[in-house]
Amino acid sequence: MLSKPIGLLGGTFDPIHIGHLRPAIEAQQALSLAEIRLIPNHIPPHRANPRCSSEQRLAMVRLAATENPGFVVDERELAKNSPSYTIETLMALREELPDTPLCFLMGMDSLLGLSGWHRWQELLDYAHLVVSCRPGWQPDYPAPVTELLAHHQTRDAEALHLRLAGHIWLADNLPIDLSATALRNLLAKGQDPRYLLPASVAHYIDQQGLYRTDAKIPLASPAQPGRK
């Protein structure tokens, strides 16, 4: 018998905010997930180095997790000195949790660009894909995604409990038009970020003086080419 599925949400979380958390909360409730694992990465393969250090981002993710029942932090990608590829993380989790369905949470923008991800054809061998809608992203799917949906999409939430992997579930969630870039720009101007991220995270950012125009940018290993 399979265990209850768990949700997986990866990212730089620079900083973590409601655009990350609210879709995850809705997926947790809609799919009856046992937990949501927040997986911050150290070297993102698909974008520039984060503004804050791995230690600072981990501290913010931990604070966010404590405010949300059923949320936990998985630090495995922070321990890597190489780019964090989703397929490698899913393979490691599958080995650790052989009887637990894995639900990898992503936005519609990520689904549309899935064919650019590292070993993307193998993702559904290890997890279900749970896709949240994003403002401004219409579902005009490229051919590879159209084919994936034709073979793997389900509207039945219970189906994700009955198989370890292989389904794509499109969420009907409340779209939140907020990016970490926009939030960092707001913080750099000294504006109040209230209600855009957890209060404890906002307090940590203020206490540490993060994202201010006079804040020092930490040194980090150079990002490597490639995709998630």
Rank of each mutant, 00 (worst) to 15 (best):
D214W: 15
P175K: 08
E77H: 02
E35D: 12
D125E: 12
T154F: 10
A220K: 09
Q208S: 14
G11D: 06
A188K: 09
L210I: 12
P225K: 05
R22N: 10
Q138K: 15
D14I: 02
Y195C: 05
P50H: 06
T213P: 03
T154Y: 09
A188F: 01
L149S: 12
L31F: 14
K80C: 06
Q138P: 00
I18Y: 14
R119G: 00
D74E: 09
P101A: 03
S200P: 14
K216A: 15
E88K: 07
D206S: 14
L38P: 00
L174G: 00
S82D: 03
W169S: 06
L219H: 14
K228W: 02
P23R: 07
H17L: 08
T100Y: 08
T66R: 12
R184Y: 14
D109G: 04
L111G: 03
E35H: 09
S221M: 13
P23G: 06
E122L: 10
A48E: 14
P69H: 11
P139Y: 00
V131H: 01
P139F: 01
P40N: 07
D140I: 02
A199Y: 00
A180I: 00
L97C: 01
R163W: 13
I6N: 01
Y85C: 02
K216I: 12
L219D: 13
A64C: 08
S54W: 06
H167L: 02
W137N: 02
I43R: 02
S179V: 06
E158M: 13
A143R: 11
H203T: 15
R134E: 01
A92V: 08
R62H: 11
T66L: 05
L114F: 00
T213H: 14
M91S: 14
A157M: 01
P40Q: 07
Q153T: 00
L102W: 06
G70K: 09
L196W: 09
L196H: 09
S53H: 12
G190F: 11
P135V: 09
R227V: 01
Y211E: 09
M108V: 02
V72D: 10
V145F: 00
A92I: 05
M91F: 00
P193V: 11
P69T: 10
V131D: 04
R184G: 08
L178T: 09
I43E: 06
S84T: 03
D99I: 01
V201K: 07
C52K: 05
P193K: 06
T89Y: 04
T12Y: 03
M106N: 03
G190Y: 10
K216C: 11
P139M: 04
E95I: 13
P23H: 05
L124G: 00
Q29V: 15
L187G: 01
L174D: 13
I205P: 06
R62V: 05
A215V: 03
L63M: 11
H152P: 11
A182R: 15
S221E: 15
A159K: 09
